[in-house]
């Protein structure tokens, strides 16, 4: 028992470091990609090509004062950022990175990966509710409404992969993809997964709640300093986790000619990450009612149709 506890903590701390590095790399890439797309250079001053930019940001945040305003519910205010970050790390547990690196293969791994972000939704609502401020309350309500309406099509899109693979464990799904990737078998499912993940991560074009023009700061208006940073860290860690899961489940992360599996996995994950950044800087932001109704009127029917087609085809093929 103690041995498994030790291995789990070692895996968790290791993946925390990986998540922290991917957050730094993600923020850095975001600003460089955005810069080059808009024909400017992005951060250049800190180190060659601004490599140390996010490191400088982190150090700055460590030294910045973070404040707990007066009329705030202290417990909720303190707990919310921790609840926001914990699911990002917990969902890294079931992703099969490459053959030897599989933290834990749960029987119901896929459902676990889709269930854990629900704690993030609770964190958003608690943050909005506990900071006694109209803007953060409205922001909390809106982003919670958006998060929950996009969780359903996301689960249904992954469900088509489960149907094809015939099992809920991520490692078995990986093994079933050695010849043909599931993204090829259910292209609609993969496209749905990408769209709903962009919405789940509150990234443009779905980033209404924190849009600068809209609601001041959304649910984390009252947060400052390192506490605010955890909401950003949670977002980018979730970004890495979702792309890694997409690569593993849809693109057969780790299966590929020539290169060793871990390299293939990193290539596919960062392909998805760069694609989402590319979408962020090309597609204009949607209006709030478009965002809200899109998921119910378009994505869920399409996801259900995709499931029906997959089930029928699988039956008679």
């Amino acid at each position: 028992m103690m041995v498994t506890l030790a291995t789990s903590v070692v895996w968790a701390v290791g993946l925390f470091v990986v998540a922290a590095l991917s957050v730094m790399l993600g923020v850095y890439l975001e600003r460089k990609v955005a810069g080059h797309m808009q024909a400017r250079l992005g951060p250049m001053r800190t180190g060659p090509h601004g490599i140390a930019q996010t490191l400088a940001d982190t150090v700055k945040l460590l030294f910045k004062e973070d404040l707990i305003p007066g009329k705030v519910d202290r417990l909720g205010f303190i707990v919310a950022p921790l609840l926001a970050f914990a699911p990002a790390l917990m969902s890294l547990m079931v992703i099969p990175y490459a053959r030897p690196f599989v933290p834990r293969d749960l029987n119901a791994g896929v459902l676990y990966f889709l269930a854990v972000p629900a704690i993030g939704v609770i964190a958003v609502m608690v943050a909005g509710l506990s900071s006694a401020n109209n803007y953060s309350l409205l922001g909390g309500l809106r982003s919670a409404a958006q998060l929950i309406s996009y969780e359903i099509p996301r689960s249904l899109s992954v469900l088509s992969v489960v149907m094809l693979a015939g099992s809920l464990s991520t490692v078995t799904i990986l093994e079933r993809q050695t010849h043909v990737w599931f993204a090829v078998l259910t292209p609609i499912g993969f496209a749905l997964y990408i769209i709903t993940t962009i919405a789940e991560l509150n990234r443009t074009p779905f980033d209404l709640p924190e849009a600068e023009a809209e609601l001041v700061g959304g649910y984390h208006t009252e947060y400052s300093g390192l506490r605010w940073a955890f909401f950003m860290m949670a977002e980018y860690a979730g970004f890495f986790a979702a792309s890694a899961f997409g690569a593993a489940v849809f693109l057969g992360g780790g299966n590929g000619p020539l290169l060793p599996p871990i390299v293939w996995f990193v290539i596919k994950t960062y392909a998805i990450i760069l694609f989402m950044m590319w979408v962020k800087w090309t597609v204009p932001r949607f209006r709030i009612d478009q965002v809200m109704t899109l998921s119910r009127k378009v994505l869920i029917p399409v996801a259900l149709l995709n499931l029906a087609v997959t089930a029928v085809v699988m039956q008679y093929v």
Binding site: D73, L106, N107, A108, L111, Y112, L114, A115, V116, P117, A118, I119, V121, I122, M125, V126, G128, L129, L137, G140, L141, A144, I148, E151, L168
Partner: peptide, 29 residues
């Protein structure tokens, strides 16, 4: 195992969120 994960998915992700919505909408904070 499946029921445990289903509990997290439906209860923590659904019912707890629903109750929080109720708390937010009825000013009983």
């Amino acid at each position: 195992e499946f029921v445990a994960v289903a509990q997290i998915f439906v209860y923590v992700g659904g019912v707890a969120v629903l109750i929080l919505f109720g708390v937010m909408l009825t000013a009983s904070r």
